[in-house]
Simulated scan of single mutants.
Amino acid sequence: MSASIRECLELQLLEMEMLFSMFPNKEDIILDDAKFVPSIRNYVEGIQHTLPPFVGYTVFVKTEDEKVKAEMHVSLPHSYPTKEPQLFVRSDSLEKQQHNDLNKGLSSFISSLDRGDLCIMNAVQWLKDNLPSYIQNIKHNTEPESDLKRLPTFHRMWIYSHHIYRQELKKKILDCAKCLNLSGFCLTGKPGIICVEGEKDHCEEFWRDIRYPNWKHISCKHAETIEVTGTIDNLRLFTSFEELIFAAHGDYGLRNDYHMDLGQFFDYLKQHQSEHIFQILFGIEGRS
């Protein structure tokens, strides 16, 4: 098994080299972590014996006339190309339904290819060729707006992670929540807890963005949905989105592997009428 994984990782390295030559500008292809390549190379050469993390990167694609831009997020399992890659495309030029249709079309195209063959460059070309048709689809399907605006749906998500340490990940969580007008918090350390509340579509977009490409040990433990009759803000338990840092215990060197004081966290939940969530998150009753 390890031999076939090693062969797959060799092919992944080869494909990345081809992509870098295909996209010479640094801003056109961005790795999720710059350590991916040396870690994989060390494993392939037998210097490293533990499996490297999954490869993840983003390719920024433009149509031939450069009028439409899209970003294709790529996540590769260790056994790619014998298994399909995980791909997700976003574009400011597309509406929600067109995003769904485009990603379904791309997924169908990838499924039609022979497993064992590298396919990211094929996916890039497919995107360049087909992206304009989805833009046209928006124009054809546009209908006059109804006099009655659709009422938004309020949503609150309680997300549990084994830990949240990395500075760039914390920044991504904070930036994404603020960009989508979500309130709530991110409890960093071990465990890591995230709460977001706001419009349902925005919460789901946040959840999709932060867990991509393959964040292990993260799950949505509980979600609440309410039809809005007044305003979204009247349903919020939190006034903004903030990072929580409580007293910690345990410090194991460079990893900063510390556990948050859950008593303080329980008090914080009580202050925001959410103490019942403690048992949902941890399986035990909370105490100050």
Results as ranks from 00 to 15, higher is better:
F88P: 06
I5M: 00
S79N: 15
I173D: 09
F109P: 06
T58K: 07
E242V: 14
K128F: 09
F60E: 01
F265E: 00
L76Q: 03
C8Q: 02
D117M: 06
E205S: 12
S75Q: 09
R208D: 07
P38V: 09
F109H: 06
E64D: 13
I284A: 12
L76E: 00
F154C: 11
L182A: 10
L182K: 10
F154D: 08
D209P: 07
K83E: 14
I226Y: 03
N130W: 00
C195K: 00
A248W: 04
H49W: 00
I164M: 01
F266E: 09
E197G: 07
F266I: 07
I280M: 07
E204F: 02
N214I: 06
G263N: 15
I245S: 12
P24D: 03
L106M: 04
L151F: 11
F36Y: 14
E64R: 13
F88S: 06
K62R: 14
T229L: 02
L19H: 03
V59R: 06
K172P: 05
S161I: 03
S91W: 01
Q86D: 01
I138E: 09
D129V: 07
K26M: 12
S161A: 15
K221L: 07
T188P: 01
L102A: 09
G286K: 06
E197P: 06
H217L: 15
M157C: 12
K178S: 12
I245P: 03
S111R: 11
D233G: 05
R236S: 10
P85H: 06
M1A: 13
M1R: 11
F54C: 15
S240F: 02
H222F: 11
V68Y: 10
R208P: 02
T50K: 11
C8G: 05
D233S: 13
P132L: 02
V74M: 00
I218K: 10
